[in-house]
Design a protein around this nucleic acid. Structure first.
Lengths: 263, 263
DNA sequence: GGCGGATATCGTCAAACTGACGACAACCCA
DNA sequence: TGGGTTGTCGTCAGTTTGACGATATCCGCC
């Protein structure tokens, strides 16, 4: 059962024990973006059993010789046409990070399957093209999923959204939703969309521009819409996308009736 | 190769595809406690290859039919004699949560192996008994590991410590290191040990006792040592151990030279 | 019993930060 | 040119922090 593993091993004394289980492993991707002021998640329609025809997060089985990140990128590209830039784990637009692992029991009718979930934060872009095991790929506003997602993907999505909501409180990660250069108002729009709340423009501007090591002015102006043109900023160079640069953090407004967020 | 999986499946159309990889899965546990004012981690000496004789985090292979949490608890008990209470994922002393998943490539000389790491926060207690695949189990002060840990356990430990340091900033999780009833000074000692910094007793007392939904006085006094006896507290009933009850959070002092923490 | 040492708890105060909101600047369109 | 819209800067009261003084209540010891 462990032929491949043992073939790479010099001594039998150093092989994986025979009593150990071996599990199929999938990666599932919670891909989030901000479109028209609302947080959207990327879902696909399943072409195959189980849960055929139902909506699901993009994902699939890890192939031998692949890393988990590679599998996440490959499945995303196969099923949705989305290509994750190689630098997506660095600073700037796009951010890919591991969320957590689910399973192996009670989540797949085919048997025990482990799923490693990834969280992708991406700028808005055109509708991706479906392919692979997926019939259609589309952005769905978070909270308006028309039906239950396949497997335990509803739980995975909830965990991913909560992770994103929590992380933009103290990290520069909100910029992962923005193009390389963006205005303070664009960044504020990300916070409002991800949190689902209103944020005061003046106080946000003070905090965002006044935090050392966060934003860097480009000197140029972003024009277009009505109103005074806004200054363009980019992320400060060399920022760790998950570093706690907002110190003290920018806390979400406490909705009186809502329970405290938990991780 | 997928006999077990397919045997549980009604239709071949709904089986795990044959191209999918199947991986041995281990769980590794970062067990932390506070002893004598310092953060300690539980390590074992390996009895078997690979890395025989070297220190490692307790852990081992997931068996068929087990959940990941069950495997973590079983390996911990087999190798160190430590029994994790069943309620360890609730509030109060002991806390077990998933950290993240490592692998499958380049971390085990036996071949591709996936490792799901868990973080355990526990009150101090007597030296556990070694057993199973481990020669000796012992508490080691974090930062004073005499040698490199086996596999990628050095990285896993660093990730676990950083998770603990970050989470006690906003959650009541520091109480997981304390007995069911504890004094404010004991709780402060946990913060000092985990963060490795000094915390002002008066300001900490104000914040800890003044935060709604965090501590609940028992009315009794904890005596013993020199000085005025302190009031005993317990966690407020029904608190989510990872809820953001400290709002705004209790931030670690910023060491001028140190880089900002990242997750 | 009294005293010094140690720890717990309560107060004080200036600095920083937040949240609410006024005011003005700089653009678009009609 | 004027009104609408959005960006940026200021003001101000209330909250929170960090630093630290002061007092309370225990211990051990003489």
């Amino acid at each position: 059962m462990y032929g491949r593993v043992m073939a790479r091993t010099a001594h039998a004394s150093s092989a994986v024990p025979e009593t150990a289980g071996s599990f199929p492993v999938t990666v599932d991707v919670v891909a989030l973006t901000v479109r028209a002021g609302a947080l959207h998640v990327l879902v696909v329609d399943r072409l195959l059993e189980p849960f055929r025809g139902q909506s699901a997060l993009p994902g699939g089985f890890v192939l031998p010789g692949e890393t988990l990140e590679q599998a996440a990128g490959r499945e995303l590209e196969e099923e949705t046409g989305l290509t994750v830039p190689a630098r997506a784990t660095g600073a700037g637009p796009w951010h890919l990070e591991q969320l957590r692992t689910y399973g192996p029991l009670g989540r797949d009718p085919r048997g025990p399957v482990l799923s490693v979930a990834y969280l992708l934060l991406a700028p808005a872009f055109g509708l991706p093209a479906a392919g692979g095991d997926a019939a259609e790929a589309r952005w769905v506003p978070v909270g308006e999923e028309d039906e239950r997602l396949a497997f335990d993907h509803g739980q995975i999505l909830a965990d991913g959204v909560e992770r994103a909501r929590a992380k933009i409180e103290y990290s520069p990660l909100a910029a992962a939703f923005c193009p390389p250069e963006f205005t303070v108002a664009e960044l504020r729009g990300v916070y409002e969309a991800v949190w689902g709340t209103q944020v005061d423009a003046r106080n946000f501007h003070r905090k965002a521009t006044g935090t050392p090591g966060f934003l860097e002015p480009t000197g140029r102006l972003g024009g277009g819409g009505p109103g005074r043109p806004a200054e363009l900023y980019r992320l400060a160079p060399g920022v760790d996308p998950t570093a706690a640069v907002l110190h003290p953090p920018l806390l979400r407004p406490v909705s009186p009736g809502r329970a405290a967020p938990s991780a």
